[in-house]
Amino acid sequence: MSETTLKLIGDRIRDLRKQRGLSQEQLAELANFHYTYIGGVERAEKNITILNLIKIANALNVGLYDLFEYTKLKKRAKSKSDDLEQIVNLLLSLNTGDVKKVKNILIEMFD
């Protein structure tokens, strides 16, 4: 698995664990792991196997597929698209001269 995938899965496990009010130690006990292993998975320091993912999913009382549902990523993407939509709508309401000013400002800021 790529580091990005491991990070997303670790974040998702942490989110689900916290939603259930479990500590790393409690989740580890339910899944029959040492608590340091759970911490390593959540920090993407462990290249977790499918069998261990199944044990964690069972301990969290979720399906394996739930560990791959990256809710934070979806929220960030939605937030970004909402921001972009608002920016485009604002630009569409401006006259041509003001749009050119905004373009020049953006070029100066990010180029």
Results as ranks from 00 to 15, higher is better:
residue 52 N to D: 14
residue 11 D to A: 08
residue 91 L to W: 05
residue 105 I to M: 05
residue 72 K to N: 15
residue 46 K to S: 07
residue 17 R to G: 08
residue 77 A to C: 02
residue 7 K to E: 10
residue 41 V to I: 04
residue 100 K to Q: 10
residue 83 D to E: 08
residue 39 G to F: 05
residue 46 K to W: 04
residue 71 T to V: 14
residue 85 E to R: 08
residue 44 A to N: 13
residue 40 G to S: 03
residue 93 S to C: 01
residue 105 I to E: 13
residue 20 R to L: 07
residue 35 Y to M: 07
residue 104 N to A: 05
residue 36 T to C: 02
residue 12 R to G: 03
residue 39 G to L: 01
residue 79 S to G: 05
residue 92 L to W: 11
residue 71 T to H: 15
residue 74 K to W: 00
residue 22 L to C: 09
residue 29 E to C: 13
residue 109 M to W: 10
residue 28 A to D: 05
residue 37 Y to V: 08
residue 73 L to G: 11
residue 59 A to W: 06
residue 59 A to T: 02
residue 15 D to R: 07
residue 63 G to L: 05
residue 93 S to R: 01
residue 31 A to Q: 01
residue 90 L to G: 03
residue 8 L to N: 12
residue 49 T to H: 02
residue 65 Y to E: 13
residue 77 A to Q: 14
residue 2 S to C: 08
residue 5 T to S: 11
residue 37 Y to L: 05
residue 89 N to G: 14
residue 87 I to T: 07
residue 59 A to L: 03
residue 19 Q to L: 07
residue 31 A to H: 02
residue 66 D to F: 01
residue 106 L to W: 10
residue 94 L to H: 02
residue 49 T to W: 02
residue 64 L to G: 07
residue 104 N to Q: 15
residue 94 L to S: 11
residue 73 L to R: 15
residue 93 S to V: 03
residue 28 A to F: 01
residue 72 K to L: 14
residue 53 L to G: 04
residue 21 G to T: 13
residue 85 E to L: 10
residue 70 Y to K: 09
residue 21 G to F: 00
residue 70 Y to H: 15
residue 89 N to V: 06
residue 81 S to R: 14
residue 53 L to F: 06
residue 26 Q to N: 12
residue 10 G to F: 04
residue 77 A to N: 08
residue 100 K to P: 03
residue 82 D to C: 03
residue 99 V to W: 09
residue 59 A to D: 06
residue 24 Q to Y: 00
residue 88 V to G: 04
residue 84 L to P: 08
residue 10 G to E: 04
residue 45 E to W: 05
residue 94 L to M: 11
residue 79 S to V: 10
residue 97 G to S: 06
residue 78 K to N: 13
residue 43 R to S: 10
residue 26 Q to S: 07
residue 108 E to L: 14
residue 12 R to N: 15
residue 7 K to A: 09
residue 38 I to D: 00
residue 110 F to L: 10
residue 33 F to Q: 05
residue 65 Y to H: 14
residue 9 I to V: 14
residue 110 F to D: 05
residue 28 A to K: 00
residue 91 L to V: 09
residue 16 L to N: 05
residue 110 F to T: 13
residue 80 K to N: 09
residue 106 L to C: 14
residue 5 T to F: 02
residue 55 K to A: 13
residue 89 N to H: 11
residue 13 I to S: 09
residue 97 G to A: 12
residue 80 K to F: 07
residue 37 Y to R: 02
residue 73 L to C: 06
residue 60 L to Q: 08
